[in-house]
């Protein structure tokens, strides 16, 4: 999860999606292309091992029913076009190779013309823009799902296959008189910071369920800002986390 977020040097924002089923893997792959086209940014589809290897019913809609978005193409006078000049939503219109714009694209920090600019001022300008383009559109990008959260005393935060165990755990916990709810992260990056912060203000604890030894858990803890304790239910992989294990933790938390 963190490699998706911080897998390269320097600062940047990234979009990463976490499907919880083969059907969602299908839909989120389309979403990923659309987000990538909209924001001119690589988008990661983070299927965990179980979702990736699971067979399940998938309904594939007719191609005509799939909504696709395309990047904003370059337009206007070719001698005035700058390939990295901010347009609507902070995204620069993009000239395709062969469209006659003679664009230069470089992995080096660059100016609006695409030419290398390694100065501190140049880096500040470019990286602030690239970061802001995603930060300013967080509300449009971030997708989450809530389950029985409205009156929850304990909120589970989970994603991928672990969110399905968490869903079962919420019902089992409720049956045992524990008011649990689930916030499922469909978008993991950018992280729904405000949502977690608000949640932390109205629950007794936040329980992160994930197939690692605590990565998103640390993000949840950070966003909770001490308003509620952040607790991890995680393991190193090889099997899905059983709902019983989550319920046991919820039960222990509810007794404190």
């Amino acid at each position: 999860m963190m490699q998706a977020r911080w897998g390269s040097h320097g600062h940047y924002e990234i979009i990463a999606l976490a499907p919880a089923s083969p059907q969602e893997l299908f839909h989120l792959t389309i979403t990923a292309f659309n987000l990538s086209e909209t924001y001119r940014l690589p988008v990661l589809v983070m299927a965990d091992e179980v979702v990736g290897h699971l067979s399940e019913r998938v309904v594939i809609p007719p191609a005509a029913a799939v909504k696709t978005r395309e990047r904003v193409p370059a337009s206007g006078r070719r001698d005035r076009y700058k390939p990295f000049q901010r347009g609507a939503c902070g995204v620069a219109p993009m000239a395709a190779a062969g469209a006659g714009y003679a664009v230069h694209v470089s992995g080096l920090t660059h100016d609006e013309r695409g030419y290398p600019d390694m100065s501190a001022a140049g880096q500040e300008k470019m990286m602030t823009w690239l970061t802001e383009k995603i930060r300013a559109n967080r509300d449009k990008i971030i997708q989450t799902e809530s389950y029985r959260l409205d009156d929850a005393e304990i909120a589970i935060v989970s994603y991928g296959i672990s969110a399905r165990s968490s869903l079962a755990a919420v019902d089992e916990a409720r049956a045992a008189g524990i008011r649990a709810g689930l916030l499922r992260l469909v978008t993991v990056w950018p992280f729904p910071e405000e949502l977690i912060r608000d949640l932390a203000g109205r629950v007794r604890a936040l329980v992160t369920v994930e197939l690692n030894l605590g990565q998103i858990h640390l993000e949840v803890e950070r966003c909770a800002r001490g308003q509620a304790p952040a607790i991890l239910v995680g393991h190193a992989g090889g099997a899905v986390i059983p709902p019983e294990e989550i319920v046991a933790r919820l039960s222990a938390v509810s007794r404190t």
């Binding site: 000239a95 190779a97 062969g98 003679a102 664009v103 230069h104 694209v105 470089s106 992995g107 290398p116």
Partner: peptide, 22 residues
């Protein structure tokens, strides 16, 4: 289109007035 990698020669893409990719 001209495509370059990294290195001194890789800077060629930055000087040619074609679609150019470093």
């Amino acid at each position: 289109a001209m495509v370059s990698g990294i290195g001194c020669s890789g800077r060629a893409a930055g000087y040619v007035k074609l679609d150019s990719y470093h």
